[in-house]
């Protein structure tokens, strides 16, 4: 989308993206379209404020499947913010 970033999304630092990949591996999350386990991490969408039924600290983190032949490479994983976000002083 030509680099447009929506204000609803949170841009993640390199360390935060690394933590996301750790959580992905811990959960054994695989691409729903092709089964690949390699991902590029994008932005994180806070869910708790916008959607009822979501935990206050829940995020949908954008993952892009690294498999060049994946038919649907854009996916996401629901994570707790405390599991990958750095605090103000970190």
């Amino acid at each position: 989308m030509g680099g447009v970033i929506y204000g609803d999304n949170r841009i993640l630092s390199g360390e935060e993206k690394r933590r996301v990949l750790l959580r992905v591996r811990e959960r054994g999350f695989a691409c729903p379209a092709c089964g690949s386990e390699g991902f590029e991490v994008g932005e994180a969408l806070p869910l708790g404020f916008l959607w009822f039924g979501e935990e206050p600290d829940a995020y949908m983190v954008a993952l892009t499947c690294r498999n060049p032949n994946c038919p649907s490479p854009r996916t996401g994983i629901r994570l707790e913010g405390s599991g990958f976000l750095l605090g103000e002083d970190e």
Partner: peptide, 17 residues
Amino acid sequence: KPPNADFYKIMAAHNFA
């Protein structure tokens, strides 16, 4: 209220790409 569905939330996290 916005669509409460994972397909929408994933699309939003990808900046609606």
